[in-house]
Amino acid sequence: MVETIVRTALLGIQYGMTLALIATGLTLIFGMLDVINFAHGALYMLGAYFGWVVASTLGSFWLALLLAPLFVGVVGVAIEVLSLRPLYDRNPLYHILLTFGFAIMIQGAVVELWGGQTKQIAEPASLAGTLTIGSFDYPMYRLFVLVVSTLLIGVIWLAVERSDLGILMRASAHDSEMVDALGIDVSKVFTGVFVFGAVLAGFAGVLLGVSRSVNPGMGFGIIIEAFVIVVIGGLGSFRGAIYTALLIGLVSSFGALVASTLTEIFLFVLMAGVLMVRPNGLFGATEAT
């Protein structure tokens, strides 16, 4: 019994950290740019596909993990510069329609290029096998995902909350004209943030494309879950997104144990519950439009 609980908790944390990877980019983009990025899931999917292409042609998972996110970053630059940049002063609703359009386009393009067949990125040989914890086998690769995502999020945390870069980013979001007046090119900061979010989504795509299947529907599959996390945490709140991702991870894994058919509903019950008590999310300070 105790073992089942410990084990389920571990699985929940692992699941939560992978969600955090995706939610982090989403919340950063919203926090800084005020953009609700519906294409975030599509970028995650694109990362997985690029990763699959690199891994299967060059035969190296590590190269895939390095290159694929950069390719996604390039797509991110194109989207930001060509479409978002002229639209920052518009009502954020238009960003939904715009990024929705991109999400559909990317999904269509992926089916066009690689077909809809489910793929999977080959596991690196060095991370094959399992690690036995008590009487429980834990796959090495999943452990690797847990460690990498935790480290990555830790680094981003420090960067956003402690460094000058983070201060600059937040300042740009808060008062872009002031930052502009200081001689810093705000539009470059915005591009940077968007691309960073895209790279992060792409990275998550490659990382998860090994232990999960790669398919065109994966982007739309994850986007609502990621949104729910960002909203419960409080739009734009970095900490909120991470705590909530972990919470959702735990709720899902324990939920699967208790009432497996209803796990999907827990997510929304949780969101409704939180928002009714705290209408701006757990860590949302200001009101969003």
């Binding site: 329609l97 715009l98 359009g101 991109f102 999400a103 559909i104 386009m105 990317i106 269509g108 089916v111």
Partner: peptide
Amino acid sequence: EIILGSIFVAVVI
């Protein structure tokens, strides 16, 4: 999907 997506993007811009 690509056509429809492009229409959305063009309309917004």
